[in-house]
């Protein structure tokens, strides 16, 4: 008896040893691959400890320079008779407040226009791009590839090219974001269409409706709630995009942000950044409300 039981223990121990060995080999292999990637990355991007040691103190220095020198005793002081603001007051910090506000207004308008244009393009293309409703195979292929290209090119790159073509200003940004939106929303819309029931479409086809009528009466009522909520989500993303697309000269607050960061090391950087973050947050909150309101209304109608 004791012979067989030691044998069982022996077999178990050997099995365990094999398992541990193979697992350890896997772990070592993963670790080696990871270390090679790490070493290669550090070598290629010159990410050496001494560069980091040099760089990090400069980061803190920089962040100190952009802090506003607010002073409590003059914080709420307005402009004096000569129209000058007192250093240390909020008015002094936000001297260009109304310039920033008009640029933020422009940024929001850019996002709205780009979202509308993009959503329209995405809407039109989402029907041929849905495999179950595409009127012809070639049209399906073409629209799918077109959406992929629109989605694939980063919008800031598009903006760079458009700025070169039509000059510095918000139009380039609007168009770049709109094109990217067509691609990103078009793919989502097409997926929604592919999940729509084909029965109403067949019903409309049987009455003698054209393909456009089949889509408009058979599919659109089914997909409208999803389309709307996706479009609103995209709008939130587009507000962020339009706040930075100005880095390449394509309008909005980003242009001013680029200017103050690149040319000044003072409290203006923080002043603009705070406004941008506030704007994005507020728009997110509003859009979320709208989305929830809309979906809620759909569910309880």
């Amino acid at each position: 008896m004791s012979d067989t039981s030691t044998n069982a223990v022996h077999i178990f121990e050997r099995h365990r040893a094999e398992m541990r060995a193979s697992k350890r080999a896997m772990n070592i292999l993963a670790l080696v691959i990871f270390l090679i990637c790490l070493a290669l990355s550090m070598w290629i991007s010159n990410f050496t400890p001494e560069r980091l040691a040099n760089g990090v103190p400069r980061i803190f220095e920089y962040f100190q320079t952009i802090l506003p020198g607010l002073q409590w005793d003059v914080l709420f002081e307005g402009r004096n008779e000569a129209g000058r603001a007192t250093p240390g007051s909020l008015t002094y910090w936000y001297t260009d407040f109304w310039t920033y506000m008009s640029l933020i207004w422009e940024t929001i308008l850019m996002a709205i226009t780009a979202s509308l244009l993009g959503a329209f393009g995405a809407f039109v293309l989402s029907f041929p791009a849905a495999h179950n409703f595409a009127p012809a195979r070639w049209l399906h292929w073409v629209s799918r590839r077109f959406l992929e290209i629109c989605r694939g090119i980063p919008e800031i790159l598009l903006a760079l090219i458009l700025v070169f073509m039509i000059g510095i200003g918000p139009l380039a940004g609007v168009m770049a974001i709109a094109i990217h939106t067509v691609g990103a929303l078009g793919k989502l819309f097409a997926e929604v269409n592919e999940n729509a029931s084909s029965r109403p479409v067949e019903g409309i086809a049987a009455t003698g409706g054209t393909w456009v009528q089949q889509m408009l009466y058979g599919v659109v009522p089914q997909v409208t709630p999803n389309f709307t909520s996706y479009a609103l989500l995209r709008f939130e993303i587009n507000v962020r995009a339009s706040s930075i697309i100005g880095f390449v000269g394509a309008g909005g607050i980003g242009q001013e942000l680029n200017r103050v960061i690149s040319f000044y090391s003072d409290d203006r950087v923080l002043a603009v950044l705070i406004l941008v973050v506030l704007t994005v947050t507020v728009i997110d909150l509003i859009s979320e409300r709208l989305r929830l309101g809309f979906i809620g209304r759909e569910n309880f109608a």
């Binding site: 029965r199 109403p200 067949e202 019903g203 409309i204 049987a206 009455t207 003698g208 409706g209 009528q213 009466y217 058979g218 009522p221 089914q222 409208t224």
Partner: peptide, 23 residues
Amino acid sequence: IFQQFNLVGRLDVLTNVMTGRLF
């Protein structure tokens, strides 16, 4: 007419019937 009716569920009944006039 179909086994599963093939109406457009989210449109009202009147509009569903009027789709018969689409042609």
